[in-house]
Amino acid sequence: MTGSLAISPAARDALEQWLSHLRALDGAAEATVSAYARDVGRYLAFLAEYRGGAEGLAALATLPQADIRAYMAAESARGVSPRSTARRLSAVKGFTRWLADRQGADATAVLAARSPRYRRKLPRPLAEDAARAVLDGVGEDARDDWVGARDTAVVTLLYGCGLRISEALALTGAAHPLPDTLRITGKGGKQRMVPVLPAARAAVAAYVAACPHDLTPAAPLFRAVRGGPLSPRPVQAAMERLRHRLGLPATATPHALRHSFATHLLSAGGDLRAIQELLGHESLSTTQAYTAVDAARLMEVYDRAHPRA
């Protein structure tokens, strides 16, 4: 990291304390903590180089906006996208807010810095008939019947319950038979209750009946061919084979099934707040992206029904 050696020991220690705070009190996932460590570390290294030396902690909390703008300009010059710069600035603000509270400093200038504008990528759900085709066909190319049943169970949980693939693969044998509602631990350790549809319960039961491995309560529910924990890759590969066979777009990934769950539920009149809870989104604004998808699909239907001359 350019200039990282110029970061003062005090700043480096403060960064480690903040990261520990995120782990212990906020329950942040280790991947999130690692990303924050990289982002804030780069920021501190930039400041040390830009300002000609390591800054004291109080100075870090009370930087002028010109310095923050210089940091974002440097990120842009390095080819960092506006979306990534916005994410990094969010990490910087989180660290600065924590630091200012400890130092009794006024961090208004840093916290008021505006993120670069960028166009949010809309979720890319499957059409309802395509989603059904995925559930019906994902297991057909499997090397063994039980593997096909396994892949079908996983994608049925993604589409039927709106789970992330990591959440589905984190289930243990204790989850079978699936109850009416599942307690899911999502990003940042946040827990939510998710209703289980009969189709998901039946798909998991069919997999368990066919699985040759001993599915003990404490062990992973979904297993790889050799019996170890199942990783996302085999499910992704099964989706790749299926989308080539069905002529689906490259966006037809396992995660697209979670998008499809939300979009189809919204189209059927689902409440946005309820969908937010089901998906485990921290912010309603994240869930609101599905309203844009729904509106875009409506306009496509309108354009087909009323073509322009």
Rank of each mutant, 00 (worst) to 15 (best):
L265V: 11
G94A: 03
S166Q: 14
S20H: 15
P254Q: 06
A24Y: 10
H176P: 02
L163W: 07
L169N: 01
Y43N: 00
L215S: 11
A219G: 13
A210L: 13
D214P: 04
Y302R: 11
P254V: 12
S20I: 12
G189R: 03
L19W: 07
Y71G: 01
G280Y: 03
A130H: 07
R117K: 10
E75P: 00
L44Q: 00
A200M: 01
E140K: 11
L135Q: 10
L157S: 01
R308E: 00
A133I: 01
D271F: 13
V196A: 13
L265I: 12
P125I: 04
V225N: 14
V147M: 08
S260F: 09
G173Y: 07
A219D: 12
L298N: 12
A127C: 05
Q191C: 09
G148D: 05
L63P: 09
A200F: 04
R69M: 09
W98C: 05
I275P: 05
D129W: 04
E75M: 15
S76Y: 09
Y207M: 07
R243I: 08
T152H: 14
A74K: 08
M193V: 02
P116A: 02
H306V: 05
L44I: 05
C161Q: 06
D144H: 10
G160K: 02
G139V: 04
Y50P: 01
T156S: 12
V225P: 02
S231T: 15
A11H: 06
R192D: 00
A250V: 14
L126A: 03
S4D: 12
R258N: 07
E300Q: 14
